[in-house]
């Protein structure tokens, strides 16, 4: 199976700190790859390097193209939808404007988005800054799904959400994953188990483990890699 994302020896330095120290990984097409690790090991920076949002060295291939030197908007237009950590909805814009901004194809799929998140239709004219955390996450995911792009990059979708919302959001992502390759950063291992087939574990800016999601059941390994018990 070919890889939708291939990172080879990617290095990122930010503010004098060598955050990524040669990350290499591959996300198989049509599957969900979860990127795990303790706080501050470089998971978010890996996604930002993939998106072209931070300067980096090394090779980044996305959907068959070498995007190592591409600006972020070109990477996205290649077919990469991005849900950042902390949502980053535009608080001064309405829900409808947030979605309109994300439109990049001639026929954005509003029907599918409103089917997944009916609440957004009702709140279309509400400013995103006045939404709850869960509703903002809906906007962030909806923006990413609007263009039906083949690759979804999601950074900690469950962060800060109540358990019921996490469950609902996971259901949505599970439905999306049936047709979309996904690169997922997530601390909630229940969500990872539900969605992912493969995991990659980062530590100190480098990949220290790759394997099937079943590796999460290896308690010793998880304690060693993530500092948690499975």
């Amino acid at each position: 199976m070919s890889a939708a994302v291939e990172l080879t020896d990617v290095h990122v330095s930010l503010g004098g700190s060598h955050v990524l120290q040669g990350v290499s990984l591959a996300a198989p097409e049509g599957e969900v790859l979860a990127l795990l690790g303790r706080n501050g090991v470089g998971k978010t920076t890996t996604l930002r390097a993939l998106m072209g949002l931070v300067p980096h060295t090394g090779s980044v291939r996305v959907l068959g193209q070498d995007v190592s030197r591409w600006p972020a908007h070109r990477v996205a237009r290649l077919g990469v939808a991005y849900v950042p950590e902390d949502r980053d909805v535009f608080s001064a814009l309405t829900v409808a404007e947030n979605l309109r901004l994300a439109e990049q194809v001639a026929a954005p799929d509003y029907d599918a988005v409103y089917e997944l998140f009916p609440e957004l239709r009702e709140r279309a004219r509400q400013r995103a800054g006045t939404l709850s955390g869960g509703q903002q996450q809906m906007v962030a995911v909806a923006r990413a799904l609007l263009n039906r792009w083949p690759l979804l990059v999601v950074d900690e979708p469950s962060k800060g959400l109540a358990p019921r919302l996490v469950s609902e959001l996971t259901d949505v992502l599970a439905r999306v994953s049936a047709t979309t390759t996904m690169l997922l950063v997530e601390q909630n291992l229940a969500v990872v188990r539900r969605l992912a087939r493969h995991i990659v574990v980062l530590d100190h800016g480098a990949v220290v483990h790759q394997g099937p999601v079943a590796d999460l059941d290896d308690e010793d390994l998880m304690r060693q890699l993530l500092g948690v018990s499975a």
Partner: peptide
Amino acid sequence: DMVRALGVD
């Protein structure tokens, strides 16, 4: 950055 990440030049 987020505007760029949505594919906008």
